[in-house]
Each structure stands twice: as C-alpha cells, then as structure tokens.
Computed example of a mutant assay.
Amino acid sequence: MALNLTPGADMLFCLGQGLRSGTKQAFAASAGISTGSIIHVCIAGLGLGALLAAFPWVFDVIRWVGVAYLLYLAATALRSSAQDADSVRLTTRQAFQQGLIVNLSNPKVILFVLAFVPQFVDPSAGSVFLQFLMFGGIIATGGFIINGLVGAFASGLGQRLAGSQKFQRGIGYVTATIFTALALRLAILEKN
C-alpha cells in the first residue's frame, strides 16, 4: 500500500479526472491504470527484462511514445480550458482508455515491476509467471483503490467549484502543466 500511496503520474491523472469529469470517470481511469499495470506484469513475467537487455532501444521507444502522449494530453487540457465544463467531461470509456495509455506508455512502471516483483518470486514455489500475476494483482488492486479514492475526493471538490468558469480554466492550465512536467521528466529519464 505504501507504494500505491506515493504520488505519481497515475495518481495525478486520476486526480485530474476526478476534478474535471467526476467520480465514475476517476474510477474508470484508475481501472485503466490497473489494467495497464497487469499488462506490465504479464510482459515482465514473460521476459521483458531479457528483451530490454538485448535491445536497449525498446526502452527509448516506449519512453518517447509516453512523452508524446503526455504532451498530447497537455495540449488537449489547454484546448479544453477554453470550453465549457460539460464539453470537456470524458465518458467512462474514454477515461479508462486514457488511463490505460498513460500507464502503458510510462516505462518507469515496467522498470519498477522488473526491479520490485522478482524480489518476492520463489522459483521453487511453482510457476514464476503465476507468481508475477499474483504479486502484480496485489499492486494493481491497491493502486485501483488508492487512485480511485484520490479521484473521488477530487470529484467532490470539482463538483463544488464546477460552476466557476475561472476554476475550469485554471484546472485546464494546471492539468496541462502537470502533463507537460511529467513529459519532461520522462524525456530526461535515464535507464539505470
């Protein structure tokens, strides 16, 4: 749970969804993020570490796709800050898809999975892949709950301030700034 309580791109994304679109969309975004985490765990369990060791450029491709997507989200947030609040609300499906893409395009998640989960895997205890899935499921479930609750809390605040055009514009600028900062951070990320 301590890992899931650490703020990061996933939590900030759910916070933004809660503020802008509401509780359902925040939990949908959190479900997309958790689905992405499970996909990362499956890939790691199937041997992505070996692929990254053999082809280091794969990490860079994933990283730059993530940078581009975060910049796209920042531009979208800026454009939406000029629109009325109802026109920028995402559907639950859109929130899920964006959460999934935000998570999958963050190579730090796969590096975390590759560094963290194997510490708990015991090859003598049975299938390594199933153990990866089990530990990944624990991480994804905790993340779903924490990120969803952060978004739900933000939704309550957003609903109280939703009528303010200044607030909506400000949220667009704050969201764009967060995504741009995350993109810059990801762009300078080194594969250690």
Rank of each mutant, 00 (worst) to 15 (best):
I110Q: 04
F120E: 05
P118M: 02
L78D: 08
V88W: 06
A75M: 05
F116H: 07
Y72P: 01
R93T: 12
S124Q: 14
A85R: 14
L104E: 04
Q98D: 13
F132C: 04
D86T: 09
V102E: 05
L71A: 07
Q119F: 04
A85Y: 08
D86L: 06
F116K: 06
T92Y: 04
S124A: 14
S87G: 00
V121A: 12
Q131S: 05
P123T: 09
N106Q: 07
F132W: 10
G126T: 07
A125P: 02
K108G: 13
R79P: 00
P107G: 09
Q131H: 03
T76A: 13
V117T: 09
D86I: 01
F129H: 04
A95C: 08
F112R: 02
L71P: 05
S105E: 01
L111R: 04
A77R: 06
F132M: 12
F120A: 08
P107C: 09
T76D: 15
L73G: 02
V128G: 05
T91P: 07
S80Q: 15
L114H: 03
D122Y: 03
F116C: 07
Q83M: 12
F129G: 06
Q97S: 11
D122I: 02
L100T: 03
A95F: 00
L100A: 09
L100W: 02
F120D: 06
V117A: 06
V109W: 00
A82Q: 15
L78G: 08
A77C: 11
A85F: 04
I101S: 01
A115W: 01
I101Q: 01
R93Q: 15
D122L: 10
S124G: 05
A125L: 11
N103L: 07
S105H: 00
L130V: 14
A125T: 04
T76Y: 10
Q83L: 13
K108D: 06
T76I: 10
V117E: 04
L90Q: 14
R89Q: 13
L130S: 14
V109R: 03
S127E: 12
G126F: 08
L78A: 11
S87V: 01
T91W: 09
G126N: 10
K108T: 05
D122A: 11
R79D: 12
V121D: 12
V88H: 06
A82V: 00
L90S: 13
I110Y: 05
G99R: 05
Q97N: 11
L73N: 05
